[in-house]
Design a protein around this nucleic acid. Structure first.
Lengths: 192, 192
DNA sequence: AAAAAGCATTGATTTTGATCAATGCTTTTC
DNA sequence: GAAAAGCATTGATCAAAATCAATGCTTTTT
């Protein structure tokens, strides 16, 4: 249990056995069946989740009722509505499972206590956010600067696993496109 | 000197006089005239900059030679090509001054030493990145989910200072639009 | 003070992606 | 194993933004 979590932690900051035990006391395991929610809009996000197994998505719903996928997550990734988690404001995202999944939850209070008690946990947190920031900045740059075909091929190169496991219309949503448009882009690409 | 920097630092993590002095030894002041570069594409980004005064922008240039503004920064903000700074890879962004500016530079080696020596500096760093992450996520969500008019009004509400100080065609670039389109959107909005 | 450069706006046209609609698969569900 | 739901694709039409082009202001530069 928590194998991947600690493997991931140790590649970022090496832990002693005692430290691992300390952290384990704060972790909460959670299983989610496909389509079940981890978080719903307007709830407060009370924990963030490390994905041990499975796949999830975070999405928002606009005024016209259309879903927009903000983020995917698979094994080894973290999903959350970070804004809600940190501020205590109601979440603007929904998070649900795309496959049966196993999560490790870190509650807000656990997070705060660990930050106090264990400097290595703060380092872990800092590195996680930094990585997430850089990934998101790449995505944003790609959206603003690159033509659609390139954006799609970049995505397939960067996240081949996601392409395998997620239906195409969700990739379209993630890219801010309709499924029809993505289908046509793929056709254009394969014509080359 | 460094007034705003330490004011900002202290609102995030309170420092003793000794700690301030320690940190001061690592800081490098830099003045930049309007249009001067802080960083150019393909250089390695060797420091990040806290803005004491002035305004800067980070932008990328695509294959067709078009500029795309990734980020603005004014007093109290941090600008950098974080990816290049952290990995040592060549920068993909250019950063230049939109006004005569005064910066506080923190070099890569200073950053690493401070992280080692001073836990409060790590907390400062973590909070900075977290804030930047949340701001960027809002921007991304807005791009994917909101109609253009709303995106523009959101932007004006969130960053009225930027609107005041930055020419409109740069706002358009930041939004991923042509100047003509933004002009027409503004016309539509004011017609209401 | 004149010339040049930068900027915002408007109009006409073209391109691109969204929308509406239908079809054929494949995967779930009962 | 039949019915239903979910999914990707294709075609036709519509809407939105980009592009091309021109004009009148400001602000810089010299």
């Amino acid at each position: 249990m928590y194998e991947l979590f600690f493997q991931n932690f140790n590649t970022k900051v090496a832990l002693t056995k005692e430290e691992e035990t300390l952290i384990k006391n704060y972790l909460i395991p959670k299983k989610l069946r496909k389509k079940q929610y981890l978080l719903q809009e307007n709830e407060v996000c009370k924990s963030y989740a490390f994905i041990e197994k499975g796949a999830l998505r975070a999405y928002s719903v606009d005024d016209s009722g259309n879903e927009h996928i903000i983020q995917f997550g698979i094994e080894g990734w973290i999903v959350s509505d970070l804004y809600s988690f940190l501020t205590g404001e109601p979440a603007t995202y929904n998070i649900d499972a795309l496959e049966d999944s196993e999560l490790v939850l870190i509650s807000k209070t656990a997070h705060e206590e660990l930050l106090q008690k264990l400097p290595k946990y703060e380092t872990f947190t800092r590195l996680n956010i930094t990585g997430a920031y850089i990934a998101m900045q790449k995505r944003l740059t790609s959206i603003i600067s690159s033509p659609l075909e390139e954006r799609y091929t970049n995505f397939t190169k960067a996240y081949p696993e996601i392409i395998q496991r997620v239906p195409q219309h969700m990739i379209a949503s993630y890219m801010g496109l309709t499924p029809e448009t993505l289908s046509r882009i793929r056709k254009r690409i394969s014509a080359k």
